[in-house]
Design a protein around this nucleic acid. Sequence first.
DNA 1: GTCTATATTAGGATAGAC
DNA 2: GTCTATCCTAATATAGAC
Lengths: 208, 208
Amino acid sequence: MKVKTRDRILQTSLALFNAIGEPNVTTLLISDELDISPGNLYYNFKSKGDIVGELFDAFEDEMLDLITVPEDVEISLEQHGFFLHLLFEAIARYRFIYQDLVNILSRYDRLQARFRKLLRKKDQAFRTICDSLHRQGVMTTNARERDALCQQLTLTACYWISYDSLSHLQDRDDVNPARGVFQMLHLLAPYLNEQGRMDIETMSRDYV
Amino acid sequence: MKVKTRDRILQTSLALFNAIGEPNVTTLLISDELDISPGNLYYNFKSKGDIVGELFDAFEDEMLDLITVPEDVEISLEQHGFFLHLLFEAIARYRFIYQDLVNILSRYDRLQARFRKLLRKKDQAFRTICDSLHRQGVMTTNARERDALCQQLTLTACYWISYDSLSHLQDRDDVNPARGVFQMLHLLAPYLNEQGRMDIETMSRDYV
DNA sequence: GTCTATATTAGGATAGAC
DNA sequence: GTCTATCCTAATATAGAC
């Protein structure tokens, strides 16, 4: 059975947004890429903003799924690394949001509060993980250090992909989450015990 | 003597760009704000891109001035704090560049290489400072830690202002550099000796 | 559901009078 | 140097036939 036009529009829009930036993608470009007419596009979506909105819905769903970390189980460093990997993959899939964040949130202002909420939840997730590592004796921080660290993790998760494509003059297409995960783990490193630091080294080696 | 129209255009454009984002500022809005005609604006500047270009020139000058750190003098933690303060002030003055970075660099592509160069120089400046702190025995890192740290400092300097205005639902106008400086110093903290960590605490207290 | 053709705007930019 | 009037283009969106 054929994929519905509506879904093809979403897929192609996402790909184009990620590739050249949402503000640079016109509805005409999307329909051209799909070999359909602009009229057809507008039959399926009331506006370009609706396409963005629906992609954001999907993004939000994936994120919420991911960053809901249970508070009552202990999390190993390795699990944390895996979590980061999934997180950076999800971000990469919807990187258009991150690459023009201020612009997009200012033009589609219903998205602002929702994105902010995700940030807060992400921060909370990192906090839960840090606390778990602390309880296990893998990590040592006081409350202020932990808060600054988690804030730094949230910021880095948010902007790493932009920074990475800026400094590595690479194709906007092939994004390797490994460097991001690596950088995030290195933020934890100074607060880990000897064993933890060694684990991180091992993980980074297996990774690249 | 009156300020030249040309300069007033630059000032007002900068203010508007910072306030609502460069992509949202039309040439008509600029001329309206100044109570001059759009024709007058175009008499002084060939295009909107030229205004952006000239503001970028000024930004580049200020930055180059700032991040040229001498390698043969030792730098105290306090001096480093002062340097960061100046850096964040300069970034705040030209925050429109940072807030729509990908977008602006993609539309005015002559700026890309130049911005990248600034990033590299900034990274270099941090490296010089870290090395000096290391020589003074204030800071201890191996080469890899130092590189990851400097990269993290560069990234944070670049995006802190966006992140800050995102998480603190504040006016885009009043930007306090203190939080940014604070966050940057806290990235160094785990690698400092006892005295250094205490100095940072003192500095952050005096600061807020 | 899909097309073609067209309306509507808005933004960047120019011409020519003063 | 400054203004008014206007042009050009590109982008969003709609109408109506098939």
